[in-house]
Amino acid sequence: MTLKLQPNFHEPGKRYVRAFTPGDDFYEALIETHRGLDDEQSAMVNARLILLLANHVGDIAVLREAMRIARAGV
């Protein structure tokens, strides 16, 4: 597997007429997850999220690629 960098958001059973909708659904859910948290709590939530998703992806080559891109622009 290679790291997917093209739009890939979707939800089972949902049909989209506008290309921006699935990404916006995701982004709203992400922001909602942080609602009411202070900065430190949010940083903790983000860290846990990364760990959960990393395990879900599993493929360490893919994760290395993601980590490289994430770090490169900062």
């Binding site: 997917k4 093209q6 890939n8 506008r18 290309a19 921006f20 990404g23 916006d24 995701f26 891109i69």
Partner: peptide, 18 residues
Amino acid sequence: LGLARDHGFARTLVNSGR
């Protein structure tokens, strides 16, 4: 915004008005 220049998935997340 930082990822959007190079990566398609991030471009679709940029929302300056739908």
